[in-house]
């Protein structure tokens, strides 16, 4: 069933001035329940802007975002919860408190937040780390905590802005495999921005390719394989075919920027 509808969305920064910048233009997109969608595109193509609009962090200049039929006017983390690129854990709070922080902000009591946090930390494999502090954790572990913080709200959708951008290749792959399993179990819809072709294909039910400035949807690609997938999927022919196609697509939209 359709969960999120983006209708003719346009975002203009500094509109009415000489250096008005159109970040996204005329974007139509729907996300189904439980669907995993990756967004890929050149830098500055408005991917983050689009994601922020989906989560109500930003109001579109034209068009609208509708979650379950309701117009999104402000963030509602129980509908769509964010996982940011730089983890954004609070270094002054313990891992357990960090994992419960989203719930606390959303109005839950301290006890409820702590209980949900403990459960989610177990779920992402960090049950023993609740009393540690973020700086004692590796980047990959910190990002798991950020995922736990989002999952603790039992959101209907996760919005992930390059969640692995700051990690090294090996950690990325391991965390990716783990999270793929975790998110498949959790059953949320996920929208994830990525710069990596492999990630974009490996995770997704559907890949959205965006063109640069103003950001438009250049293509949607379905990945015809059930999730969660194991690493061997990357060596299959369908994966390789999509990869080659994506590569060419990105070259093309990137080239458009260069010219």
């Amino acid at each position: 069933m359709t969960q999120l509808v983006i209708d003719n969305l346009t975002v203009t920064y500094g509109s009415g001035t000489d250096d008005a910048l159109v970040a996204c233009a005329g974007i139509d997109l729907t996300i189904d329940e439980g669907e995993f969608v990756t967004i890929i595109g050149p830098s500055g193509c408005g991917k983050s802007t689009l994601l922020h609009c989906m989560g109500g962090m930003l109001q579109p200049s034209e068009g609208g975002v509708f979650f379950g039929g309701e117009r999104v006017v402000k963030p509602n983390p129980r509908n769509a919860a964010f996982v940011f690129q730089d983890y954004s854990l609070f270094p002054w709070k313990s891992v357990g408190e960090n994992a419960g922080m989203g719930l606390r902000f959303a109005g839950a009591s301290k006890a409820d937040a702590a209980a949900a946090a403990a459960q989610q930390l177990d779920f992402v494999g960090l049950g023993d780390f609740a009393d540690r502090y973020p700086r004692e954790l590796s980047g990959g572990m910190q990002q798991r905590v950020a995922v736990a913080r989002a999952l603790a709200l039992e959101p209907k959708m996760l919005l992930m802005d390059e969640p692995f951008g700051a990690l090294d290749e090996q950690t990325r792959r391991n965390l990716g495999m783990d999270l793929a399993r975790i998110l498949a179990e959790a059953g949320q819809a996920v929208v994830m921005i990525t710069h990596s072709l492999d990630e974009a294909i490996f995770w997704a039910d559907r890949i959205i390719v965006m063109s640069a400035r103003p950001g438009r949807i250049a293509e949607e690609i379905r990945v015809p394989a059930p999730r969660p997938r194991d690493l061997a999927f990357m060596t299959t022919q369908p994966f390789q075919d999509i990869r080659v196609h994506l590569f060419e697509q990105l070259e093309q939209v990137q080239g458009a920027v260069a010219r």
Partner: peptide
Amino acid sequence: KYLQVGKAYGASGLQIDLNIKLGAAR
């Protein structure tokens, strides 16, 4: 980035002061 988390999770003004600003400024 800390304030962004507060906004994304719907923190109140008081929560932003106590849990984010005071913690970051500590």
